[in-house]
């Protein structure tokens, strides 16, 4: 719960967090080492100086760390854990749905744990989707199109097997598809950050919601265009939001574009924990106003009402969370961690 300086309670759903193990013990090869180092560089590059972590802590943090950083020190009421497996890089997975469930067992009402699959597995991907539905009753999935798999260095959302998987998600009522558009490297002669495949699947699977993480950056223009065309495309603010600290005016330009094109009902807050922690992000976001000249240009402003939507109401809608009911449950079961 975030309490505004005026005393208003804001329900916060953190739309994209990880419970990862990027430690050297779990790294399979140089790629695993380089992957967590890249995350650590993001963390260092955009965090305020006093929020930076030691590398070893960043590589692997405990369940207690998660509870403290999100719910005790941090303002989150709920968090959506996204599973990023990276099986070619990490022995037991970078993220792992089973590990996330064990971590979340203490406070089930606070977490939504999304699954993940790789359409390049073909039939096995379909079987695995069934397994995740039956075992964990997943409500969403996270797809990482830049993931390596043997010779393959990535895949597209409109590949034939990607479509077969979407058909199954639709049939099973798994409606929320979070998409991480990393720098895919196929085909290599094209723009590595292309987001146009989102357009195809969003048109063809109207029952599914596609939440594009970091709003398709660095192809904000393409993302905005697609989100205008497709009513089921949303923007996740992971990576975009931390610019609020280091480049506040630039953040204003980005959020003005997003509000103008995508609209206040289709943007989702996320800290991308543990790359960043939610406390400083939410505090800065609540205090933020788009500079006047930028706001005037696009005719938009981040009102309190819009901030409240972005911080939690929009995600609650996507995941059928009854906020009053949930608040009551959370109050009855406060978060505790072992004394340090």
């Amino acid at each position: 719960m975030y309490i505004t300086p005026e005393g208003k309670e804001i329900f916060v759903v953190d739309g994209h967090i990880h419970f990862w193990d990027g430690s050297p013990e779990n790294q399979r090869n140089i790629h695993g080492k380089q992957f967590i180092e890249c995350f650590y560089a993001y963390h260092n590059a955009l965090s305020p100086a006093e929020q930076r972590w030691e590398k070893s802590h960043f590589e692997k943090y405990s369940a207690d760390d998660v509870y403290r950083d999100l719910f005790i020190d941090g303002p989150d009421d709920m968090a959506i854990i996204q599973t990023t497996v990276l099986g070619d890089f990490y022995k037991t997975g970078f993220g792992c749905i089973k590990r996330s469930h064990e971590m979340a067992a203490r406070a089930k009402d606070r977490f939504i744990i999304n699954g993940s699959y790789d359409p390049r597995d073909g039939e096995q991907a379909l079987e695995y989707i069934h397994f995740m539905k039956e075992t964990y009753d997943i409500k969403g999935v996270k797809l990482y199109t830049a993931e390596w798999k043997g010779e393959s260095k990535g895949w597209k959302l409109n590949d034939p097997w990607a479509y077969k998987c979407f058909e199954l998600l639709d049939k099973l009522g798994i409606r929320n598809v979070h998409i991480h558009k990393g720098p895919t490297i196929i085909p290599l002669n094209k723009d590595a950050f292309d987001v146009h495949d989102v357009d195809y699947c969003a048109t063809d699977f109207q029952n599914l919601n596609f939440i594009v993480e970091h709003c398709g950056q660095p192809r904000l223009d393409d993302f905005c265009w697609i989100a205008v065309q497709e009513t089921n495309v949303y923007g996740g603010l992971a990576v975009v939001l931390p610019f609020i600290h280091s480049r506040p005016r630039y953040f204003g330009e980005m959020i003005a574009e997003l509000l103008f094109w995508v609209g206040p009902d289709k943007l989702l807050f996320s800290s991308d924990y543990a790359i960043w922690t939610p406390k400083w992000l939410v505090e800065k976001f609540w205090a933020y106003q788009i500079p006047e000249d930028i706001a005037a240009e696009r005719g938009v402003q981040l009102t309190d009402e819009i901030k409240e939507k972005i911080l939690g109401l929009n995600a609650a809608k996507l995941y059928d969370i009854d906020i009053e009911d949930r608040k009551a449950k959370l109050r009855a079961d406060p978060v505790r961690i072992a004394a340090e």
Partner: peptide
């Protein structure tokens, strides 16, 4: 420009951190 600045800022930040 917004697209280019996004990467530009990240690249400089990442390079500095790396």
């Amino acid at each position: 420009r917004l697209n280019m600045e996004f990467n530009g800022t990240l690249c400089q930040g990442l390079r500095g951190a790396r």
